[in-house]
C-alpha cells in the first residue's frame, strides 16, 4: 500500500479485496498441501501478471521469499532427523524426503500468504483505507497511524539524506563497506530522531488545532467505490470460508492433537 498506488482494480472496494485475500490465504493454510499451494501460487501469479500488478508484486515477494526458502532449506533440507526416507547423508547432514516435503509445504504455503497480502497492499490507497475506517467508525487515530506512516516514510528518508549531506559538508568522511555504513547510521540517528520528534510536535499542534481527536463523529471527504453486489460477494465469501473451515476441521478442532 503506497501513497501513489493506483485505485483498486476495476473499482473494487478495498474490503472486497481484503475478503478475497483472507479467503485465499486461510484456505491454502488450512489445506496445507504443497501441491495445492503451488497450484494457487501459479494461478495468482497468472492473475496478477494479466492485471499488470505482477511487475510490482512478484519481485517484492521474491525479495522476501528467497531468503525464507533458503532458511527453510538449510533447516529442514539438511537436518531433518525425524525423516525416514534418506536420500543422501554426509556426517551430521541427512537429506530426507520428508524434510524436503516439509520445507516445500511450509515455503509454498507462506509464499501464497505473502503474495496475497502484497497484492492487497499494492492495490489499496492509504487514503481509501482511512476513509473506510472513518465510515465504519473505527477510532480516527488508527487510520491516522496507518496513513501517516506510509506518507512520512519518503520524507524521513529525505531528511536522513539531508543530515548525511550536512555532516559530510562539515568534514565527516564515511568509510566504505558495512562497518562504515553502520557508523554513518549511528552518527545520523540522533539528529534524525531529534528532528523527527520536533516536527511531530508541530504536527500535533496542527492536527489538534484542526480538531483532530475530538469526541464527536467524524466524516470523510473521500468516497470509496462500493456496490451492493460487492457487499453481497463479501458476505458470501466470509460465510463460505466459515463453512469450509467447519467441514475441514470437523468438530474436533479445539481438542489438542485432534487436528489434521
Amino acid at each position: 500500500m503506497l501513497p501513489d498506488s493506483p485505485a483498486g482494480p476495476g473499482g473494487l472496494n478495498p474490503l472486497t479485496l481484503l475478503s478475497a485475500a483472507v479467503v485465499i490465504a486461510v484456505t491454502t493454510t488450512a489445506i496445507n498441501s504443497w501441491a495445492v499451494s503451488a497450484a494457487v501460487l501459479l494461478l495468482l501469479a497468472t492473475l496478477l501478471a494479466l492485471n499488470g500488478l505482477g511487475r510490482k508484486v512478484l519481485p517484492a515477494a521474491a525479495v522476501i521469499m528467497v531468503p525464507f526458502w533458503l532458511s527453510l532449506l538449510l533447516t529442514h533440507g539438511l537436518f531433518f532427523h525425524e525423516g525416514r526416507t534418506i536420500l543422501w547423508t554426509a556426517g551430521p547432514v541427512r537429506v530426507t524426503a520428508e524434510g524436503l516435503q516439509f520445507a516445500a509445504g511450509m515455503g509454498l504455503r507462506t509464499a501464497v500468504f505473502v503474495v496475497v497480502c502484497l497484492a492487497f497492499s499494492f492495490s489499496v490507497r492509504p487514503a481509501d483505507l482511512m476513509a473506510l475506517l472513518t465510515k465504519y467508525r473505527f477510532p480516527p487515530q488508527l487510520g491516522f497511524v496507518l496513513c501517516s506512516t506510509l506518507t512520512i516514510a519518503p520524507a524521513v528518508s529525505g531528511r536522513a539524506r539531508r543530515i548525511a549531506q550536512a555532516q559530510q559538508s562539515r568534514g565527516l568522511v564515511t568509510g566504505q563497506g558495512a562497518g562504515g555504513r553502520l557508523r554513518a547510521v549511528q552518527q545520523q540517528a540522533v539528529p534524525l530522531v531529534m528532528a523527527l520528534l520536533h516536527e511531530a510536535g508541530s504536527r500535533a499542534d496542527s492536527l489538534e488545532a484542526r480538531g483532530f481527536g475530538g469526541r464527536g463523529p467524524r466524516t470523510s471527504y473521500r468516497e470509496v467505490p462500493d456496490s451492493p453486489a460487492q457487499r453481497i460477494i463479501r458476505w458470501l465469501a466470509v460465510a463460505a470460508l466459515a463453512v469450509f473451515l467447519m467441514l475441514w476441521f470437523g468438530p474436533g478442532w479445539f481438542t489438542p492433537g485432534g487436528v489434521r
Partner: peptide, 21 residues
C-alpha cells in the same frame, strides 16, 4: 489508541518508520 494524546500519537508513525527502516 483513542486514549493516546495527539502529541504521542504523531510520534507513532515516526516510530514505525524507524522500526521498519
Amino acid at each position: 489508541l483513542p486514549t493516546v494524546p495527539t502529541s504521542t500519537l504523531v510520534l507513532i508513525p515516526v516510530a514505525l518508520v524507524l522500526n521498519i527502516v
